[in-house]
């Protein structure tokens, strides 16, 4: 009980952006995809992106397509 009382941080429940807003995932939409990439150009994990399983899977494939077409970098070291 004590430990529960001491817990002062309430994290806002994240809702999948692609479910709530009507955004189409497109590998040509670089501005959108670059929001789901870390400083080191890695794909942001689901715990940080807040996406549902289905859209996280879609995101990873679209980012990879985007990388192939040289719209997004694979690493910082290019």
């Amino acid at each position: 009980m004590d430990s529960r009382r001491d817990r002062r941080f309430f994290s806002k429940k994240k809702v999948c952006r692609f479910c709530t807003e009507s955004i189409e995932m497109d590998y040509k939409n670089v501005d959108l995809l670059s929001r789901f990439i870390t400083d080191r150009k890695k794909i942001v994990p689901r715990r940080n992106s807040g996406l549902c399983a289905y859209h996280q899977r879609q995101l990873s494939t679209t980012i990879k397509r985007s990388r192939f077409m040289a719209l997004l970098p694979y690493t910082v070291l290019h």
């Binding site: 077409m69 040289a70 970098p73 694979y74 290019h78």
Partner: peptide, 19 residues
């Protein structure tokens, strides 16, 4: 013609490309 932009990385020594 979709865009003319800098490539995220070099391809065959090209830094720019036309999409």
């Amino acid at each position: 013609k979709w865009a003319e932009r800098n490539l995220a990385y070099e391809i065959q020594d090209h830094k720019k490309g036309t999409y």
